[in-house]
Amino acid sequence: MVSFWKLRQSPNFRFAMLTLPGALFLLIFLVLPLISILIFSFWRTESYQLIADWNIENYKTILGQKTYLTFMWRSLVMAVSVSLVCLIYAYPVAYLVAKRGGRYRLILVLLTAAPFFTGIILRVTAMQQILGPIGLLNMALQTFGFEPIQILMYSNVASAIGLVYLWIPFMVLAIYLSLLNFNFELLEVAYVNGAKPWRAFLEITWPLNWIGTAIGIVLVFIPTFAAFVTPRFLGGVNGALYGNILEHQFGATGTWALGSAMGVVLFFICLIFIMIIWRTINLQRSGYTGEEF
């Protein structure tokens, strides 16, 4: 009992509890398929047929060939930048809503998720309508005699904008929920003790809300790293990411075994990322003493 109480108080345990429902979902819908994928990844494909011929050629291909590494790198850069942009954009929004939203704050937060009511394809196409060559933005520019902005048409930047738009509600929600438990009076204490607002943010707000923020980052990073729909619609021919190449193996080329191996690699990269974030929570004394939740 005592040890359970101790366990309950540890930030790691909280992190685990928060992610448990997701984890169960993942077990049924991800881990079981993943095990089959893990098995397939050590087989090989011949004329759209999986052959149980155990080998590690698929991994050699992915980790040895420059093309695959390039796509992996692109996705990594994309995931990091999208997470960063989401973070920078979502923090003030969540902060304002939590601090000044009053009785409307729940509605305000749900509003950030409004685009979710329509489904991913519709949302991505909507973005295409805005950013694409015949999209709202560039059409408007051309109407007024300006050059269309090339970088917004079928590029990684366009994909990034789309992905930010797609996943930012997660970030807002995670930070908002964390700030709900945050005692804003601590900031006043900091001010009185000589901290300017930005300093008080770095010393107090940021560390005390790091767990929520980290969850937000994970929730944005992972789907971005695995994204394939958004880059296909918005990224154009040169905007393909790791997820597109992966998807390709299961579609056009029918190289299921290689695709499986790519999936396994993707899974481990995400796992490593979560571990890194987890470590920071471990090291950070996040100030949770078991009282606030």
Partner: peptide, 14 residues
């Protein structure tokens, strides 16, 4: 340049 002490202490928990 003032100091202040609050009723509920308000120490920085972290």
């Amino acid at each position: 340049g003032i100091g202040m002490v609050f009723q509920d202490f308000l120490l920085f928990p972290h």
